[in-house]
Lab assay of single mutants.
Amino acid sequence: EFTQISGYVNAFGSQRGSVLTVKVENDEGWTLVEEDFDRADYGSDPEFVAEVSSYLKRNGGIKDLTKVL
């Protein structure tokens, strides 16, 4: 089950073990991109978060400006 990723309007994530599946949706709710990120592939949590965040930004993730990150 996908849940909204904090700080984004149209990005959602689903966690299974160490694998986080993220997706970005358009205004109609269609999935634009979907990608798996395995936490085990990264040396640290900040590196993992930075990679996921960068992916979302590159692929149309819209920041939720009503929330302070």
Rank of each mutant, 00 (worst) to 15 (best):
Y8W: 15
E28A: 10
E47P: 01
A50D: 09
V52H: 01
R16D: 03
F37G: 01
D36L: 09
Q15D: 02
D27P: 11
D36R: 13
Q4K: 14
D38E: 02
L69G: 13
L32N: 04
T31N: 04
D27Q: 11
V22Y: 01
G61H: 02
N59G: 03
E51M: 12
G7L: 07
D36K: 14
D41C: 13
V33G: 08
G7K: 04
F2H: 05
V22N: 01
S6T: 10
V52C: 06
S6Y: 14
V49I: 13
G29A: 05
G17M: 04
E28L: 12
G29T: 02
V49T: 09
T21D: 00
Q4V: 11
R39I: 04
D27V: 10
V52Q: 01
E34P: 02
N59H: 12
S14K: 15
E34Y: 10
N10F: 06
V33Y: 12
D38G: 02
F48W: 07
W30G: 11
K23R: 15
R58E: 08
I62D: 02
L69A: 14
L20D: 00
L69I: 14
L56M: 00
N26I: 07
T21S: 07
E34I: 14
V33E: 05
D38I: 02
Y55D: 02
G13P: 00
T66A: 08
D38P: 01
Q15R: 15
D41L: 10
V9N: 06
A40Q: 09
F37H: 01
Y8P: 04
E51P: 00
G7F: 05
T66R: 09
Q15K: 11
S6I: 11
G13R: 07
K57G: 09
S18V: 04
D45G: 07
D27Y: 10
F37T: 00
E34C: 15
A40E: 09
A40I: 06
D45M: 09
N59E: 04
D36A: 12
T66I: 09
Y55H: 03
Q4N: 08
D45H: 08
V22L: 05
F12H: 03
Y42I: 00
F48R: 00
G7A: 04
N10C: 14
R16A: 06
L65C: 15
S18E: 02
S18R: 06
F48P: 00
L56S: 00
G13V: 12
E25K: 15
V68N: 12
S18I: 04
E51Q: 09
L20T: 02
D41I: 07
V49G: 05
L69Q: 13
Q15W: 15
Q4F: 08
G60V: 01
R39L: 04
R58D: 08
L20G: 01
T66S: 11
R58L: 10
G17H: 03
G60W: 09
V52N: 02
A11D: 02
N10E: 01
D64R: 08
D64I: 09
G17P: 00
V19Y: 03
Y8A: 05
G60L: 04
F37P: 01
E28Q: 12
S14P: 01
L65E: 12
V52T: 00
F12D: 00
S18P: 03
D64G: 08
L20V: 06
G17A: 03
I5A: 04
F48L: 03
W30N: 11
L56R: 01
R58I: 08
T31A: 08
T31E: 04
D36N: 12
R58C: 11
D36M: 12
W30D: 13
K57W: 08
L56C: 06
S44E: 03
V24H: 01
G17R: 02
G29C: 06
V22K: 00
T21E: 01
F48V: 01
G7W: 06
E51K: 09
Y42F: 11
E35Q: 15
G13F: 14
K63N: 07
I5F: 07
D45Y: 14
L32P: 03
L65W: 12
V24K: 01
L65F: 13
G29K: 04
G29E: 03
G43R: 11
L20Y: 08
E34N: 05
V52W: 09
K57R: 10
N59D: 00
S54Y: 10
V68E: 14
Y8G: 06
E47T: 03
E51G: 07
P46I: 14
L65Q: 09
V9L: 12
Y8V: 05
V19K: 05
R16G: 02
I5G: 03
N10G: 02
W30E: 13
D27E: 13
F2V: 04
W30S: 10
V33D: 05
G61N: 02
G13M: 15
S18M: 06
E34L: 11
Q15E: 06
E51C: 13
K23G: 01
V68L: 11
E25S: 12
D36E: 12
G17V: 04
D27F: 10
E47V: 05
F37A: 00
N10L: 04
S44R: 01
L20C: 14
F2N: 04
A50F: 09
Q4Y: 08
W30Y: 14
I5N: 04
V68Q: 10
G61D: 01
Y42V: 01
D27I: 11
V33K: 07
G61Q: 03
E25F: 14
I62K: 09
S53Y: 14
G60H: 05
S44P: 02
E51Y: 10
K23E: 01
D45T: 10
E34M: 15
V19N: 00
D41E: 08
P46A: 15
L32A: 06
S44L: 04
E47K: 03
S54Q: 11
T66G: 09
D38W: 03
S18G: 07
S54F: 09
S44D: 06
S53G: 09
V68S: 12
E35S: 10
E28N: 10
G43V: 08
T31P: 07
Q4E: 07
D36P: 05
N10Y: 07
V24T: 02
T31F: 06
K63M: 14
K57Y: 10
D38K: 03
F2W: 15
R39M: 06
Q4C: 15
T31Q: 05
F37S: 01
G43E: 10
P46K: 14
G61S: 05
E47R: 03
I5L: 10
N59L: 08
A50M: 10
S53M: 15
E1P: 10
Y55V: 01
Y42Q: 00
K23D: 00
R58T: 08
L32G: 04
A11K: 00
Q4S: 07
F2D: 04
L20W: 08
E28P: 04
E51T: 11
E47W: 04
T21A: 03
E28S: 10
Y42K: 00
G7C: 15
V52P: 01
F37I: 02
L56K: 00
V9D: 03
E47Y: 03
N10P: 00
N26V: 06
N26T: 09
V52Y: 05
G17Q: 02
A50W: 09
V68C: 15
E51L: 07
L56E: 01
D36W: 08
G13W: 15
L32V: 11
E34Q: 14
Q4R: 14
V24Y: 02
T31M: 06
Y42C: 04
V49E: 14
E1M: 12
N26R: 06
V24P: 00
T66M: 10
Y55E: 02
D41T: 08
T3I: 11
T31Y: 05
G29R: 04
